Simulated assay, not measured.
Amino acid sequence: IYTGVYADGVNQANRRKSRHEQSFVAPEWGWAWPMNRRILYNRASADPEGRPWSERKAYVWWDADAQQWTGEDVPDFEKTKPPSYRAPAGADGVEAIEGIDPFIMQGDGKGALYAPQGLVDGPMPTHYEPVESPFRNQLYGQQANPTRVEYRRDDNPMNPAPPEEHVDVFPFVFTTSRLTEHHTAGGMSRYLEHLAELQPEMFVEVSPALAAERGLEHMGWCHVVTARSVVEGRVLVTERLRPLKVEGRTVHQVWMPYHWGSGGLVKGDSANDLFGITLDPNVLIQESKVGTCDVQPGRRPTGAAMRQYVEEYTSRAGVTDAEYPPIVTVSDDIVTASEDTGTQEEEDDE
């Protein structure tokens, strides 16, 4: 992924030209892989004839005199393919992308809200709640993606979510992301002295309101529990994680970095142990980067006591090895109405 970073013998990523000395795109501030292009599909900033939709916001355009695409950014389009190009019959690949089609990574070069093929959960976009959510889907009756990929194993239970009962056992929403000082799961950066010193411990970031509700002390210890595991970390109380008001009630957010593990100069619990595994149905990316949890003060149990502690939670939540959240969660009335409509349509066809 570093191809091009030393183009022309210059460390492109180390460039720091002032914004006063270049265009608003700032192409000479740092570098973007692989061609220093700053906006993908930027052909869409010009109309079908290749003219900027807005002269004030002109970004890339077709230069009829030079017979090529040009502009403030590196054009994300075949440089010499004119707007007038039309694909010949039977064309495929790049030749099938016409001069008016900006979305070159799509087979037909077009963006679409209606996708009749290629998406398991298409053809129209919609909103689904995460598999673990404290709230009912407000858009319509189906709670989570019914085409998600699940791994129904004893070591991959899911916290209950509406319309199931016992959602209050795991009342908070948690997510994870990364820190500047560490790389991915930390397997490389935790062994580097300078980086380990800058971020030495696993921590759990919470709001002052959640800290007060659960008796958490800033820089003290706390632990986070799900149906899979429990991890511990230092408490970081900040104003950044504001409680959310949804459906007339307050829900707290919890955030953790995912860079710690059992090896390195600095060690700590892995936040990834908290997640179950469910996958997006199209490209099989882990959908469960958000989940529900409980947070309690103090350090977690260890050994057999830790497993027993988690099992106490799953017992209260009604989570068993043999039960999983339902795939289809619309009401029976809606399902029945849909079936009746389908039967009537079949009769009409006959």
Rank of each mutant, 00 (worst) to 15 (best):
G263W: 11
G263A: 14
G263L: 10
G263E: 07
G264E: 07
G264S: 10
G264D: 02
G264M: 10
G264F: 08
G264T: 06
G264P: 01
L265T: 06
L265P: 09
L265H: 04
V266A: 14
V266Y: 06
K267A: 13
K267Y: 04
K267D: 01
K267L: 13
G268Q: 10
G268S: 06
G268M: 03
G268A: 09
D269Y: 12
D269T: 04
D269K: 07
D269P: 11
D269W: 10
D269M: 07
S270I: 11
S270P: 02
S270Y: 10
S270W: 09
A271E: 01
A271S: 09
A271P: 06
A271C: 12
A271D: 07
A271Q: 08
N272Y: 14
N272Q: 00
D273Y: 11
D273M: 07
D273A: 12
D273Q: 12
D273W: 13
L274E: 12
L274Q: 01
L274D: 11
F275A: 00
F275R: 11
F275C: 02
F275H: 03
F275W: 14
F275P: 01
G276V: 00
G276N: 05
G276T: 03
G276P: 08
G276R: 01
I277K: 08
I277L: 15
I277F: 15
I277D: 03
I277P: 03
I277M: 08
I277V: 09
I277G: 03
T278I: 00
T278A: 09
T278V: 06
T278Y: 02
T278L: 01
L279W: 04
L279N: 04
L279V: 00
L279G: 07
D280W: 01
D280M: 06
D280Y: 06
D280A: 08
D280Q: 01
D280K: 03
D280T: 05
D280H: 11
D280V: 00
P281E: 03
P281H: 05
P281Q: 06
P281F: 08
P281T: 08
P281D: 05
N282R: 06
N282K: 11
N282L: 15
N282G: 09
N282E: 12
V283P: 08
V283G: 03
V283I: 13
V283S: 06
V283H: 12
V283A: 10
V283T: 04
V283W: 15
V283C: 08
L284S: 13
L284T: 05
L284F: 15
L284N: 01
L284I: 07
L284E: 09
I285T: 13
I285F: 15
Q286E: 12
Q286H: 12
Q286N: 14
Q286S: 05
Q286K: 02
E287M: 11
E287Q: 11
E287S: 15
S288M: 12
S288K: 05
S288V: 00
S288Q: 02
K289R: 10
K289I: 00
K289L: 06
K289V: 06
V290Y: 11
V290D: 05
V290A: 15
G291D: 03
G291T: 01
G291V: 04
T292H: 07
T292D: 03
T292A: 05
T292N: 12
C293Y: 01
C293V: 07
C293G: 04
D294F: 02
D294H: 04
D294W: 04
V295H: 07
V295P: 00
V295E: 02
V295F: 13
Q296W: 04
Q296G: 04
Q296K: 15
Q296T: 14
